[in-house]
Amino acid sequence: TLDDSATICRVCQKPGDLVMCNQCEFCFHLDCHLPALQDVPGEEWSCSLCHV
């Protein structure tokens, strides 16, 4: 889900339109996540760090 609060991106440390991982609660810009996300993920989304 998009989170436009004062939360910062885990990768670039900047605020903005972010998606939050449902497991670790880290936030990412779509372009900062590795691999980059093309679209906003669904409600139950886990980042690539949680899939390691």
Rank of each mutant, 00 (worst) to 15 (best):
T1K: 14
T1S: 11
T1G: 02
T1D: 15
T1N: 15
T1F: 15
T1L: 04
L2P: 15
D3N: 11
D3H: 09
D3K: 13
D4L: 14
D4Y: 05
S5G: 06
S5I: 12
A6N: 15
A6Q: 07
A6E: 15
T7G: 09
T7L: 04
I8N: 12
I8W: 05
I8Y: 14
C9P: 06
C9T: 00
C9I: 00
C9N: 04
R10G: 07
V11F: 05
V11K: 09
Q13C: 14
K14M: 09
P15H: 10
P15R: 06
P15G: 10
P15Y: 08
G16A: 02
G16E: 06
G16I: 03
G16S: 11
D17I: 04
D17E: 10
L18T: 15
L18H: 02
L18I: 05
L18Q: 03
L18Y: 02
V19W: 13
V19A: 02
V19S: 02
M20K: 05
M20Y: 07
M20I: 05
M20D: 02
C21T: 00
C21N: 02
N22K: 13
N22F: 07
N22P: 05
Q23T: 12
Q23V: 08
Q23G: 15
C24T: 01
C24W: 00
E25D: 07
E25I: 07
F26C: 12
F26Q: 14
F26A: 12
F26S: 09
C27Y: 13
F28V: 08
F28C: 08
F28P: 01
F28H: 05
F28Q: 03
H29R: 01
H29Q: 00
H29V: 00
H29G: 01
H29M: 00
L30F: 02
D31W: 00
D31H: 12
D31R: 06
C32D: 02
C32N: 03
C32W: 00
C32R: 02
C32F: 00
C32V: 00
H33S: 13
H33D: 14
H33V: 13
H33P: 06
H33A: 12
L34Q: 13
L34E: 15
L34F: 13
P35G: 08
P35E: 04
P35T: 03
P35Y: 01
A36S: 14
A36K: 09
A36L: 09
A36G: 10
A36T: 09
L37Q: 11
L37A: 13
L37V: 11
Q38C: 05
Q38E: 04
Q38S: 07
Q38P: 04
D39F: 08
D39K: 07
D39E: 15
V40C: 05
V40L: 08
V40M: 08
P41E: 11
P41R: 07
G42N: 15
G42W: 06
G42F: 09
E43R: 09
E43T: 06
E43W: 09
E44V: 08
E44M: 12
W45P: 10
W45L: 09
W45S: 12
W45A: 13
S46I: 12
S46Q: 14
C47E: 07
C47Q: 02
C47I: 00
S48A: 10
S48C: 06
S48W: 13
S48L: 04
S48G: 11
S48D: 08
C50S: 04
C50I: 04
C50A: 11
C50K: 11
C50N: 03
C50Y: 00
H51L: 12
V52G: 06
V52I: 05
V52T: 11
